[in-house]
């Protein structure tokens, strides 16, 4: 009771007064984002992702014979005609492994990283609030998904514009769109891929509440992303495919048709939302009752 504590000392009165008006608590989110994105590891991962489109573009530029139609990863053959395809090609290349790898690191580190350092107990003693901390941590992981995807797309656009001709973009459906619209489509694709990774992030968050060893949580998350893709490639398990979080990962190409096929976007968003709800609930159930002994 603040009224009782006020009598003990001047300091006590001050702290009792402080209790009356807690702030909304956005400072923790700001702090989480700044700690995450100023960390050398995060920056290194984003730079590595940005290097993928650069490598692709430089390799294509330097090779004497441009890739023929249908050679290499999808869209590779179009890069020489239009630099705006570099980002898309790089996404196709990074989605199966590189992107989930970095996202597994970011998501697996969320709670386990704090537990491993021991800072988890001090955050909880502050008190951050367990639910609030979980939400902030997930928001940080989601922000990393966006940053990771964006760094591939933006670096791809930049290197594409620098090395190749830029003009109206032919779409998969055969229609052609202006450069301006192609930028909009690139942003849509970045959004699609970001959303695609949110389910994996939720899985990572949950695994992260299970352990005090961040590397374990990271590895488990990455392994699950590979397992999901392997299962998705087995025709015998067709019934399972629509439930796998990686099922729609490469369907962002539907955004490159005219008119846009929104069904895969909607299906993907729904699936990812389901993963977020399910694994978010598991993480909540685990973390709220967890004994923090690290």
């Amino acid at each position: 009771m603040p009224s009782e504590t006020g009598a003990t000392s001047g300091d006590a009165a001050v702290s009792a007064a402080r209790l009356a008006r807690p702030s909304a608590g956005w400072a923790l989110l700001t702090s989480e984002l700044s700690v995450l994105f100023r960390r050398r590891r995060t920056i290194a991962m984003l730079l590595a992702l940005a290097a993928i489109p650069v490598l692709i573009a430089v390799a294509v530029k330097l090779s004497s014979s441009p890739p023929g139609p249908g050679e290499g990863p999808p869209f590779l053959d179009r890069i020489t005609q239009n630099g705006l395809f570099v980002g898309v090609t790089a996404l196709v290349v990074s989605i199966p492994l590189f992107l989930p790898l970095t996202i597994g690191v970011a998501a697996g580190d969320t709670i386990a990283g704090e537990a491993g350092l021991g800072t988890l107990r001090y955050l909880l003693l502050a008190p951050a609030g367990r639910v609030r901390l979980l939400l902030v941590k997930y928001a940080g992981a989601a922000a990393f998904c966006l940053a990771a995807t964006s760094s591939v797309v933006v670096a791809g656009a930049a290197i594409g514009v620098a090395l190749f001709p830029v003009g109206p973009v032919p779409l998969l459906s055969g229609d052609t769109i202006t450069v301006g619209e192609s930028v909009v489509r690139s942003l849509l694709v970045a959004g699609y891929v970001t959303i695609s990774m949110l389910g994996l992030s939720a899985v990572g968050l949950f695994i992260s509440t299970l352990t005090e060893v961040p590397v374990g949580a990271m590895a488990a998350t990455i392994v699950l992303s590979v397992v999901s893709q392997v299962l998705d490639s087995l025709n015998q398990l067709a019934w399972l495919h629509p439930w796998l979080f990686s099922h729609y990962w490469l369907d962002f190409t539907d955004l490159l048709r005219e008119p846009i096929l929104w069904t895969s976007f909607a299906d993907n968003a729904l699936l990812q939302a389901g993963y977020i709800a399910f694994f978010g609930a598991l993480a909540y159930g685990r973390f709220v009752t967890k004994d923090v002994l690290s």
């Binding site: 702030s23 702090s31 955050l123 502050a126 008190p127 609030g129």
Partner: peptide, 13 residues
């Protein structure tokens, strides 16, 4: 210290 202080909603920024 900044980081840990932001976790306390009662600590004025």
């Amino acid at each position: 210290l900044h980081r840990l202080d932001t976790a306390d909603r009662h600590a004025p920024s």
